[in-house]
Nucleic acid binder design. Structure first.
Lengths: 338, 338
DNA sequence: TAGTAAATTGAAATCGATTTACATGTTAGT
DNA sequence: ACTAACATGTAAATCGATTTCAATTTACTA
């Protein structure tokens, strides 16, 4: 563990600390001769500049913070992986802010930016974790930030996601095309934007097809497997059962299928089940799950790209960027029973 | 965005910067009167000390870095979540180092500690990412560090994991108790310690039961679903097929089951399948997966706890800590066919 | 070869906090 | 009333780099 500082290197190379610093940041300003001389010493002793010292002076930490509700959710994990890659190859490190959905923690991690511990923010929830003055333009009050996947209700924020309304609509249209008329929806938590958007798409599609909405067919879940099972139980108790169940997450769809199978129902012959996300396991459950594919890697890489742009001082237009979703038809959906 | 520094606060409160600093670090050294006065100003303007400035002086970044091969692996995600919680409640932030198994990236992230960007290291791979001098005691050359889940071959390192040998042995013993004699093993990558340990347990159990090892029944996978499918294909081509397949990860077991089912085999009637990890989805695939449970949360929390102890200057005994595994018998295993 | 422009280099200030060493003010004891 | 002991507060050094501005060297022109 060499504890040599820039002054030590400078002394060893018989130059000033300023020159050593320039060797790293602006080598073209240093003559070849001294460059070589200094470089040689640096390599010899394995010197790397201390980040804290540099950060203090440059006011750049080299970190970004990603605020996500739950890293064990495969959707988030897939996004984070892409973010990490993009950040790393641009020389940034990612601080992981797993919030468990708690506003308090969102604010804690957002605070890292204010404290100078991070330079920018990737936000995968529906709240802006800063106190803002509604009289001033939002953009001027926020640090470099990109909102991914979830939606914040403001077009002054840079957002990246699939078009949840259109995606849900496409899913329902597909089920309708199979002859389904009683289509249940298991939503996510009511305060989550992505869930509300998918609900909108669901209702829109049914309306356009002239199918009346039935509130008994709309159940609120929590995006988790267990709540899929719970909601499936409720749906089976209905006097008029649905012939298809559209779940706003794959996890819930997996729970629904498990419960239906336990009760002796055959998916999709008795009831069709459709998910949303296309997590890796969707292909491998039995029957394999029909679902809406979200381009996780692309969502992550677009988010980090837009954030890096801002950090490099480029202007990024606010507003939503839609990434393409894709219907993945597999074996959990089929023709409606007569 | 208030950009007030400690000097501004000091001026506003009519005290010196040192006093303001003490309000945060050693409030008991400040008289009640001034404490209140300063605290009031701090609350009013919402001042928080800049971390970079503090870190430079104290030589503590308040960050730890977690080096993991792949965050999209549910095993790692579960561990990381626990780590994040432990770190956060101790005032630390977690830098995510997803390495994709690349040594180069492991070293990059380990470097953050040397550069002062992180104070300690959580390592979930089998290599020490530092150049070390074999003549000197290892412990003195390493930063505060805990090795989790995987194994580094040195008892000078602090390690936390389940006893993979015993766990695999227990799994095989269970299969043997069901009457299986031709038990295949699908391992992880050959350079991964956990896989080798599980292989050892597998062989040990068979030996003790007087069952001869058959190298045709040992296939090397990559811990991924796809490699489970690939290996299953190979196993089915064997002149003498196994009656049970023990996979060293749940992902591979899921792949195996999927492939067997595609080929018309019934699990477990024709072939039993067993996994390792007990990821969340193990319960929900069909049939539900018999597997070895790893206490992910406890692994993560133990790792972070041991690291925090070190960071607080407490001495932590090197060596392995075993956490208890648990056999989860579900529906993918059954009596050996006659 | 002198004179000037351009390319290098260095000294010192700076980033924002912490902390040491010292100064001041207060209280208590004799 | 005087001094010792203690509580509290301050000035200034410090952490390790970057960067401004000035000084110096080099390169080139006339």
């Amino acid at each position: 563990m060499a504890i040599l500082g820039i002054r030590d290197i400078a002394a060893l190379a018989n130059v000033s600390p300023a020159t050593v610093s320039r060797v790293f940041s602006t080598p073209e300003m240093v003559s070849k001769k001294t460059l070589n001389k200094v470089q040689k010493i640096i390599d010899e002793v394995g010197y790397r500049p201390n980040r804290m010292g540099a950060s203090l002076r440059t006011r750049k930490s080299g970190n970004i913070v990603a605020i996500i509700p739950d890293i064990t959710n495969p959707v988030n994990a897939g996004i984070i992986r892409a973010i990490e890659q993009g950040a790393q190859s641009a020389g940034y490190s990612v601080l992981l802010g797993d919030t468990q959905g708690l506003e308090e923690r969102e604010q804690h991690y957002a605070g890292l930016v204010s404290h100078g511990q991070a330079d920018g923010l990737l936000l995968f929830c529906s709240r802006i974790p800063f106190k803002t003055d509604p009289n001033l333009p939002l953009m001027e009050q926020l640090p470099p930030m990109v909102n991914g996947n979830e939606r914040i209700d403001s077009d002054e924020v840079i957002q990246v996601a699939v078009d949840n309304v259109a995606a849900a609509k496409a899913a329902i249209n597909y089920l309708i095309s199979l002859g389904h008329k009683r289509i249940a929806a298991i939503t996510g938590p009511g305060n989550i934007a992505s869930s509300n958007e998918r609900l909108e798409g669901y209702q829109l599609a049914l309306n356009e097809a002239g199918i009346e909405l039935d509130s008994a067919l709309q159940l609120e879940g929590e995006y988790l497997v267990q709540s899929g099972m719970d909601c499936a139980r409720q749906l089976l108790l209905l006097p008029q059962r649905p012939t298809a169940i559209f779940c706003f997450s794959d996890d819930m769809a997996i729970g629904v299928m498990k419960f239906l199978q336990k009760q002796g129902f055959v998916v999709p012959d008795d009831i069709s089940v459709m998910g949303f996300d296309d997590i890796n396991y969707a292909k491998f459950v039995t029957p394999s799950l029909t679902t809406v594919h979200q381009p996780l890697h692309e969502i992550g890489s677009t988010c980090i790209e837009l954030l890096l742009k801002q950090l490099q001082g480029q202007k990024v237009e606010p507003g939503r960027r839609y990434l393409p979703f894709e219907l993945k038809v597999r074996d959990s959906t089929g023709k409606a029973p007569e």
